[in-house]
C-alpha cells in the first residue's frame, strides 16, 4: 500500500482522532436559563484498517457525540478527525460528500433511524442516489447484494421498514451502511434493545461482514463484556473524556481505571445473574 520506501513498517491508521471536543448549548426554558454541556473534551484515539475499536462508557458520557462527530452529523468544536490523510473536522457539508461513502453509521434505534415512509429498497438506494452511483439497474443490483449481505431476503425490498421486526430493521440499517462499501463503520450501540438471541445473530453477522470486507469498526457499547468478544482494542470514556485505552485482553484482565472496573462489574452482573460463576 505505502509507496514510500522510507516510511515506517506500520502503515498510518485508517482513522486518527485528535483532541476532539464538542459543547452543546442546551436550550433554556422559561424557568431555567440555557446551559452549555461539554459532551466531549480532549478525546484522542486511532483505528487501524480492518480492526475493531470498542468504545465503552456509561450512559451520557459522550459516546454518541464522538460517533456523530466522526460520522460528521455534528461538527466538532475542536480537534482533528484524520481519515485517509484528510481532516474531516475542517470540511464543510459539501466538501464532505466524497468522503461519506467511506464512513457509515449504524444507530441504536433502527426503527427511528430510517424514513418511516420509505420501502426497504428506497432506504438502501438513497445513499447511492445522492452519491450519483450507478444506473437504476445497477443500484437495484447493489441493493439486492447489500440485503443479502445483511441476511435479508432480497424479495423483501418492496416492504416498508415498519413491516420488519427489530432485528431485521437493524439488518436493514446495516444494509444501508454496507451498500456504499465503507472502510469504517461507526456502530452506536447497535445491539442495545434487541433480545438475546437476536443480539447474538447480529453480532455474528457483524463479525462475518468484517471478515469478508475488512471493514474497520468503531463499536460503541456500554457493555464491556460484549466488546470483549468483538473488539481488538477497547477505549473507555467517562464524563466526556477518554480514561483508558488498550488491547482488549489487557483491559478485560487488568482494568486500571475505576470507571472500567465499574463497567466490567456491571456487564458481568448482566450476563451472569444470581452470583453464578463468581
Amino acid at each position: 500500500m505505502n509507496s514510500q520506501p522510507s516510511a515506517p513498517a506500520t502503515p498510518p491508521p485508517l482513522l486518527r482522532v485528535q483532541e476532539l471536543a464538542k459543547t452543546y448549548i442546551r436550550r433554556g426554558s422559561f424557568t431555567q436559563p440555557g446551559a452549555r454541556v461539554q459532551a466531549v473534551k480532549g478525546v484522542s484515539f486511532s483505528i487501524e484498517a480492518g480492526s475493531t475499536l470498542g468504545l465503552a462508557g456509561s450512559s451520557g458520557c459522550g459516546k454518541s457525540t464522538v460517533a456523530r462527530c466522526i460520522g460528521r452529523i455534528e461538527r466538532p468544536d475542536e480537534g482533528k478527525i484524520l481519515f485517509d490523510g484528510h481532516n474531516l473536522a475542517a470540511l464543510s457539508f459539501r466538501e464532505l460528500r466524497p468522503f461519506r461513502p467511506a464512513i457509515q453509521m449504524v444507530f441504536q434505534d433502527a426503527a427511528t433511524a430510517m424514513n418511516p415512509s420509505f420501502s426497504a429498497a428506497d432506504i438502501i438506494a438513497e445513499p447511492l442516489l445522492i452519491q450519483g452511483i450507478g444506473t437504476a439497474e445497477e443500484r437495484a443490483g447493489r441493493v439486492r447484494q447489500a440485503m443479502q449481505e445483511a441476511g435479508l431476503p432480497a424479495e423483501w425490498s418492496g416492504r416498508a421498514a415498519h413491516d420488519f421486526s427489530g432485528g431485521q430493521r437493524q439488518r436493514l440499517t446495516l444494509a444501508r451502511a454496507l451498500v456504499l462499501k465503507p472502510k469504517l463503520l461507526v456502530l452506536d450501540e447497535p445491539l442495545t434493545g434487541l433480545d438475546v438471541s437476536t443480539r447474538a445473530q447480529i453480532a455474528n453477522l457483524l463479525l462475518a461482514v468484517q471478515a469478508a470486507h475488512g471493514i474497520a469498526y468503531l463499536f460503541i457499547s456500554h457493555d464491556l463484556f460484549l466488546l470483549g468478544h468483538l473488539a481488538d482494542r477497547i477505549a473507555v470514556m467517562s464524563e466526556g473524556q477518554l480514561v483508558e485505552e488498550g488491547p482488549t485482553s489487557q483491559i478485560m484482565a487488568r482494568p486500571q481505571h475505576a470507571e472500567t472496573r465499574k463497567l466490567l462489574a456491571a456487564s458481568g452482573r448482566q450476563l451472569a445473574p444470581a452470583g453464578a460463576g463468581r
Partner: peptide, 26 residues
C-alpha cells in the same frame, strides 16, 4: 431532529433534497 434525518445527513443528503424528500413528507 429525528434520527433518520441525521442518518440521511450522514449519507451526505442535505439542502432541498433533505427538506422535500425526507423531512416534509414525514
Amino acid at each position: 431532529h429525528a434520527p433518520f434525518v441525521e442518518a440521511a445527513r450522514g449519507c451526505g443528503i442535505g439542502g432541498a433534497r433533505l427538506l422535500f424528500r425526507h423531512v416534509l413528507p414525514a
